[in-house]
Nucleic acid binder design. Structure first.
Length: 132
DNA sequence: GGTGCGGCTGCAG
DNA sequence: GCTGCAGCCGCAC
């Protein structure tokens, strides 16, 4: 056996594997995990901040997720618009840049928005049920 | 290393 | 169903 003292985490990017339970050591790792999970969300589906945080292994850091998403650049290819508040509520207010963008994108994907709310029973992403 | 701050969450009114 | 309040968690001073 190779007694590697500092080989706890490694060498290369282990991000080759699918997300779920990454061993997050640093904030950057967590952000990466968050982005990875976020990228797994299929079109027409939505997740809540808390759900996304849990998927990234952050537990209840839903707030942090929201802040992190707000820090995404405009050119980001991540489907940040598929992240909504608990209960299918849209945290972003209509009239806001992000709010308008989110609604527009969601509708483009076939997600019906009624009074700042999305039907989670219909569009809620169920990773446990093979993204379908 | 203590304090403040969020694109939150859940419950009560 | 909306508003207000307290709780959580991690990040930035």
């Amino acid at each position: 056996m190779i007694s590697t003292p500092t080989a706890t985490r490694t060498d290369k990017t282990m991000s080759d594997e699918f997300p779920g339970k990454l061993q997050n050591d640093s904030a950057a790792e967590r952000r990466t995990a968050l982005y990875t999970v976020l990228a797994q969300i299929p079109p027409g589906k939505v997740v809540t901040y808390g759900q996304l945080a849990d998927m990234a292994g952050l537990g209840r850091a839903a707030r942090w997720v929201g802040r992190t998403l707000s820090q995404l650049p405009n050119g980001s290819l991540l489907p940040w618009h598929r992240v909504i508040g608990a209960g299918g509520r849209l945290s972003l207010v209509e009239g806001s840049v992000g709010g308008d963008e989110q609604r527009g994108r969601l509708r483009s994907e076939g997600v019906l928005i009624m009074k700042n709310r999305v039907d989670m029973h219909r569009h809620g992403w169920r990773p446990s049920e093979h993204s379908g």
